[in-house]
């Protein structure tokens, strides 16, 4: 990857849970309760754009997931996309 990539751009943490893989052990809810919430016994909801204050917890949540269903990535700002349209 060369310098055209978003490394130089502002990146925000994004998180994505594979809810087909998720077995609702809810370890993420304990690790990062502001990002991962249970609505019902087995209904996991999460904020894909966690606040910066929660980032460390989200990383712990991803590590704690027994089925490794949580991926951490980053956002690309909309202006980046528009800048790339020739």
């Amino acid at each position: 990857m060369n310098d055209e990539t978003s490394a130089a751009r502002k990146r925000r943490m994004k998180v994505v849970v594979d809810l087909s893989r998720c077995e609702v052990f809810a370890q993420c809810v304990f690790a990062s309760p502001t990002t991962f919430v249970l609505h019902g016994d087995e209904v996991l909801e999460y904020d894909p754009s966690p606040d910066e204050a929660a980032h460390e917890q989200v990383i712990l949540a991803a590590r704690a997931c027994p089925v490794q269903a949580i991926s951490i990535g980053w956002s690309e700002e909309p202006e980046d996309m528009e800048a790339r349209v020739p």
């Binding site: 990857m1 990539t5 998180v15 994505v16 894909p48 980053w74 956002s75 996309m81 790339r84």
Partner: peptide
């Protein structure tokens, strides 16, 4: 908050 997490650098052109 719904835009998908980017998991790998793309180095792509977009026509959105």
């Amino acid at each position: 908050h719904t835009p998908l997490a980017r998991l790998h650098d793309l180095e792509a052109s977009w026509r959105c």
